[in-house]
Amino acid sequence: MSRESTGTGSNGGGSSDPVSTHDSRLSTLDSLNAPRALSERVIAAVLFACGMVSIFTTLGIVVVLVKESAGFFSEVSLGQFLGDTQWTPLFTDKHFGIWPLLAGTLLTTAIAVAVALPLGLLAAIYLAEFAPERARKVLKPTLEVLAGIPTVVYGYFALVYITPLLQKFVPGLAGFNALGPGIVMGVMILPVIASLSEDAIYAVPASLREAAYALGAGRLRTVFRVVLPSAFSGIGAAVILGVSRAIGETMIVAIAAGQQARLTADPRSPIETMTAYIVQISLGDTPTGTLEYRTIFAVGLALFLLTLALNAVAFRLRRRVLKGGAL
């Protein structure tokens, strides 16, 4: 069986490894099989259109958010949006300052990162540097389970189990608060931070560790003084992607954090995040085309720009790691 496959492989114009040189772009036979018949061209066009759907999706998101936000900003000035400290579009005394929603988002995200960063980093160091190969193979996918749980389920846990539990230890903790959902969100983004950090730590060349050992450093010293600084870009990318995930997370905060947009840093009080506000308006019966309706697109645009910027930074950091630029 395997001899046959090598035979066919070497016949195929210099493709010695049948799997890695599968790419038709590289095949010397490519030009021979360039589309000739009309049906071939139609098929190529249809497949190309499928590829373009993803581009149109992005364009669609941008156009929808910008168009509806333009309607919003024709009535509410950008100065008010970024300057006012109150968000009360549904009250008679209307204020359209994004800060309370942004503060709610940043507060829950900060709590989530405070939970996920230490745990995720410890898990990553253990998996990459200490765990036996077999344990690593089992533990890494098991940890991923945490990211696969539907967020509505996490929201239920935060509201019904975690908050009542926390109320026993934290005086003054409201039934809806930032702390409970923040902690649960931390559990949710833990695999993102752990898994990507582990990749970064694992990719640090063995020679660096060996050099540290040769200088008499112990393993812990090597990990903290040599390996972690070398993997810094990759770990940074992991954290930023975790933050981006937490900012865009919706159901946990919509269920358990409350619906009161307020500018506070107190994790015990009810707050509202940008995503939870969009849910709140979507559930209500706000007529389309009104200013109140358009607020969700303005908030959505802010959310889009925020996550896009974070993802772009993370992408650059990761590319630096892949190119070996971190060293």
């Binding site: 993803s54 669609g60 981006s244 995503t275």
Partner: peptide, 22 residues
Amino acid sequence: IELNIGTLAGVPSILYGLLGLE
């Protein structure tokens, strides 16, 4: 297209909801 697929994977799911709504 390839870069865009990566970008789309990072867009919060609620924004797809706004796209679908409109």
